[in-house]
Amino acid sequence: MNHCHLLDIEFAYNGQIQSITPVLLQDERETVLVDCGYPDFTPLLEKALLQNGVTFDSITRLIVTHHDMDHIGSLAELKRKYPQIEIIAHEREVPHIDGTKKSLRLEQAESTFDKLPDEAKPHAEQFIRFLRSMEPVPVDRTVSSGERLPWCGGIDIVHTPGHMPGHISLYLASAKTLIAGDAVVIEQGKLNIANPQYTLDLDEAIGSVQRLLDYDMEQLICYHGGLFSGNAKEALMDLLRQYKP
């Protein structure tokens, strides 16, 4: 039997309570984690896993949707602590995860720094230091668009660029479930583009929302917002109408 568990993790950040939703996929042989939070989130992940009767010792794979720090922050620590875990990412994300190339989010932050008002620069400097502190991690397996991973009833790789060039979403045909990563987020009960002002290519991000409509989904899971309540396809079309009137 295949299982899909949402790991709802709440935490304090910049004086506010925030949340992320990594996803746990299971079948008789494999236990797959999708994304792993900020640095030092291992204890929070371990607690969330235990609530679902799972420990990290049983995790076999970890799929990274993209290399933003809230998705890969704990990756290096987890790989050291649980070396059996196979790290999986899209081929375009790999050099930014393994340190061969600079983080694209860091490039973006550095390139826009001089244009910021003076009052915003201290926070930006802190953000840049944070990004520079991210520890590189070797990727064990690369995936590409349209590939199907043979676990948990089949995990289809859906290339959804825009937020990041190598961003992927995952489609579970057996459960009619789409794991969107940051392709879309839930804000006040509605779907939106994740941080459109920081999206590396907004046109591509809009095209990725359109691509999600190709999939027969009964459930849509967002990393920021969790499980969407309502008709996901209608909500995606409403979102597209905001950007394509």
Rank of each mutant, 00 (worst) to 15 (best):
M69F: 09
R61Y: 08
L50D: 10
H71N: 10
E86W: 04
H66E: 13
I72K: 02
L49F: 07
K81G: 01
I63T: 05
T60G: 02
R80T: 09
I72V: 12
K81Q: 06
H67C: 12
H71A: 11
A76R: 08
S74L: 12
N52H: 15
H71E: 09
Y82D: 00
L50M: 14
P83V: 13
R61D: 12
L75F: 06
T55N: 04
P43I: 15
I63E: 04
L45E: 02
I72R: 01
N52F: 11
N52V: 11
Q84A: 10
G73I: 04
N52R: 15
L78C: 03
I63S: 01
H71P: 00
I63P: 00
E86S: 07
E46H: 06
D57L: 10
L44A: 15
P43K: 15
L50A: 15
T65R: 03
S58I: 10
M69A: 14
L44K: 15
Y82E: 02
P83W: 07
E46T: 12
I85A: 03
E86T: 11
L78A: 03
M69P: 00
L45V: 04
L78G: 01
D57K: 13
H67D: 08
K81T: 06
E46A: 15
Y82H: 04
L75N: 01
E77V: 09
D68S: 11
K79A: 15
M69I: 14
L75P: 00
G73K: 01
S58K: 09
R61C: 11
I87Y: 05
N52A: 14
A76Q: 03
H66M: 13
F56D: 02
P83N: 05
S58G: 03
D68H: 08
I72D: 00
Q51I: 11
D68F: 08
L62I: 14
N52C: 14
K79H: 08
I63N: 02
A48I: 09
E86Y: 02
Q84W: 04
H71L: 15
K81L: 13
E77A: 14
L62M: 11
T60E: 06
K81H: 02
H71M: 14
E46L: 14
T60Q: 02
P83R: 06
S58H: 05
M69Q: 07
S58A: 12
I85P: 00
A48N: 06
T65K: 04
